[in-house]
Amino acid sequence: MLDINTKKVMKNAYRITKRRGETALRVRTPGGEFPADIMPILTEIATQYGDGNLHITTRQGFEITGIKYEDMPIVNELVAPIIEKLQKHIGVKIDNPKDGYPAAGTRNISACIGNEICPYANYNTLEFAKKIEAAIYPHDLHFKVATTGCPNDCVKARMQDFGIIGMANVKYDQNYCVGCQACVKNCADRCTGALSMHKGKVIRNKELCVECGECVTRCPTQAWTRSSDKRFRLVIMGRTGKKDPRLAQEFATNIDMESIIKIIQNTYDFVEEYITPGKAKEHIGYIVDREGYHEFKKWALKDVKLPEETKIKPYMEW
C-alpha cells in the first residue's frame, strides 16, 4: 500500500517512472565534473537499491534507476556525501544533505570540458558552472543553464534558457606578424572568414568575427593573443520541446561573469512575478514570450553593473 506525495518525490530529485513502485534519482554533477571517488557510492546505491544500472543524463548528471519508493530515505542518506562534495563544498546552501536533494526544478549546470583540457575553450567552463550552481541552486523553478568554452558550442548552450559562450576578445600585434596567413586561411576554412591580408598584415572584420580565438591558437609567433579579461556571449531562451522549439539568441556580448550571474538571479524574480499560477514547471521562455522582451530585460538588468564594453540587444526576435 504505497502512499506517496509525487510532488515531494519530484522536488527531492526523484522521478515518477512508468514502472509502478519504482523511482529514479538524478545525481547533480555541476559542470559534469566530479572526483572519481564518488563512483563507489553510485555503484552501491545502484546495485543495492536500484536495478544495477546508471544512466548518464543529457545534462551530464547520473540517473540511478529502479529504486523503490520506500528506499528513498536510505538512498538519500547514501547520496549525502556526494551532496557534501559536489554542492556544499562549492558553496551551495543545503541544510541537511541526508534528506537528499532539496530541489530539482533548476537543472544541473552543464559544461563542455573547458580550457583545462580543450585548446579552443576560452575560459574554465567547469569553474563557471560551479559558480552558477552555488548562486542559483537549490531552486524549484525550471531553469536550464550551460557553459561552453567557444562558439563551437559543444555543450549546446543555444538549447538552454541561459547559454554562456566564451569570447576570446583577440588582440593583434602586427610587429610580431610574419604574414604566414595561418590565421586567415583557418578563419576562412573553419570560422567566419573575418580575416584578410592587406600588405602583408592581417585585417580583422569585427562585424564577422565571433571571437572564437582560433587565430590565437594558429599563430606561430603569437602576434594574436586573447584579452586577459574574461568576457562572454550570453544567449537566452533557447528550448527544445513540443511548442515552438528554438535556438537561444544573443542577449549580451562582451559581458562579464558577475553580471551574468546577477542576470540569471534576477530572472528568478521575473519568473516568480509572471509565472502562470499553478504551473510550477512553466518554461521561462514562454513567460518571456508572453510578457515581452522589454519587460524581461527590465527585470533581468536590475542593479546589474555592466562593463562599459558590454552590448545588450535592444530588440529580440527568436
Binding site: 580550457n115 591558437t217 593573443t225 586573447r226
Partner: peptide, 15 residues
C-alpha cells in the same frame, strides 16, 4: 612572462 598571452587561454607566453 606575458600573462595569459599564450597559445591557449589562461596560458602564458615567454618571449
Amino acid at each position: 612572462t606575458i600573462e595569459k598571452a599564450g597559445r591557449f587561454s589562461d596560458t602564458n607566453n615567454i618571449r
